[in-house]
Simulated scan of single mutants.
Amino acid sequence: MNIIGRLTRDAEVRTTSQEKQVVNFSVAINDGYRNKQGERIEQTTYFDCSYWISTKVAKILTKGTLVELTGRVSARAWTANNGELKANLNFLASTIKSHGGGKKIENLQAITEQQKNKVAKQEPPDDLPF
Rank of each mutant, 00 (worst) to 15 (best):
residue 128 L to E: 07
residue 2 N to C: 08
residue 85 L to K: 08
residue 5 G to W: 01
residue 85 L to C: 11
residue 103 K to H: 05
residue 19 E to P: 15
residue 28 A to N: 07
residue 93 A to S: 06
residue 94 S to Y: 14
residue 3 I to E: 07
residue 116 K to N: 07
residue 41 I to V: 04
residue 109 Q to G: 09
residue 124 P to T: 11
residue 93 A to H: 08
residue 104 K to V: 08
residue 125 P to I: 12
residue 127 D to R: 12
residue 29 I to V: 04
residue 72 R to L: 05
residue 63 K to R: 04
residue 27 V to E: 01
residue 119 V to F: 10
residue 114 Q to V: 13
residue 32 G to E: 10
residue 53 I to S: 14
residue 64 G to P: 01
residue 45 T to F: 07
residue 35 N to D: 03
residue 82 N to R: 11
residue 15 T to G: 05
residue 21 Q to T: 13
residue 116 K to D: 10
residue 10 D to G: 00
residue 109 Q to V: 12
residue 76 R to L: 08
residue 12 E to K: 13
residue 12 E to P: 05
residue 65 T to W: 01
residue 83 G to A: 13
residue 33 Y to F: 14
residue 76 R to T: 13
residue 105 I to H: 10
residue 90 N to K: 05
residue 72 R to P: 09
residue 87 A to E: 10
residue 69 L to G: 12
residue 63 K to H: 12
residue 67 V to G: 00
residue 16 T to I: 15
residue 23 V to A: 12
residue 117 N to T: 11
residue 13 V to M: 03
residue 65 T to Q: 13
residue 6 R to T: 03
residue 107 N to Q: 15
residue 57 V to Q: 00
residue 79 T to Q: 14
residue 122 Q to L: 07
residue 126 D to A: 06
residue 125 P to M: 09
residue 12 E to V: 09
residue 31 D to S: 12
residue 65 T to F: 05
residue 46 Y to T: 12
residue 118 K to M: 08
residue 94 S to L: 08
residue 85 L to Y: 11
residue 4 I to R: 11
residue 60 I to M: 14
residue 42 E to A: 13
residue 71 G to Q: 10
residue 50 S to Y: 07
residue 79 T to L: 04
residue 90 N to P: 07
residue 59 K to F: 13
residue 94 S to T: 03
residue 118 K to W: 12
residue 45 T to V: 08
residue 68 E to P: 15
residue 79 T to F: 02
residue 81 N to Q: 13
residue 17 S to N: 09
residue 57 V to G: 01
residue 25 F to A: 00
residue 105 I to N: 05
residue 13 V to H: 01
residue 124 P to L: 14
residue 119 V to R: 03
residue 76 R to C: 14
residue 83 G to V: 05
residue 122 Q to P: 10
residue 12 E to D: 09
residue 23 V to I: 06
residue 7 L to C: 04
